[in-house]
């Protein structure tokens, strides 16, 4: 799914500059535990999270996440924004909570990009 379609579905606001909205995201992952993101997220995911500290961006860099959605209308602190700009990871804010945001994307056909841990 194109990033801009996901943003449309989430009624999202792009917080970082120079974002290529035509980029593809392969699937979604909803998580607040960074170890979970690191352990089971496949590359090129759209990460939905309730956290907005800089570690979210660091984690996204490590896990090759394409873009981050901050749920529940969270506005990230400056350090997070700055790090996201530097690392070139788009930050998107949506007023929807995690439940609604994931539900809407799933409904629109964005698959899950988390590998179930038990399948390993």
């Amino acid at each position: 799914m194109e990033l801009k379609r996901a943003i449309e579905i989430l009624d999202g606001e792009v917080l970082t500059t120079s974002v290529n909205l035509n980029r593809q995201v392969k699937g979604g992952v909803g998580a607040d535990l960074m170890s979970d993101v690191l352990s089971s997220t496949q590359p090129e995911a759209l990460l939905l999270t309730g956290l907005c500290n800089p570690q979210v961006v660091r984690t996204a860099v490590m896990a090759d996440v394409t873009a981050i959605v901050l749920v529940r209308g969270k506005q990230p602190p400056n350090e997070t924004l700055q790090l996201a700009e530097n690392e070139g990871i788009p930050l998107i804010s949506t007023r929807y909570g995690m439940f609604e945001a994931c539900g809407r994307l799933y409904q629109a056909g964005l698959p899950c990009l988390e590998r179930p841990v038990s399948s390993e």
């Binding site: 352990s39 999270t49 570690q55 984690t59």
Partner: peptide, 15 residues
């Protein structure tokens, strides 16, 4: 609450 300390770190490293 910062998203860490879920007891998955070392498991993750091992993987």
């Amino acid at each position: 609450e910062m998203g860490f300390g879920a007891g998955m770190g070392l498991v993750n490293i091992k993987r």
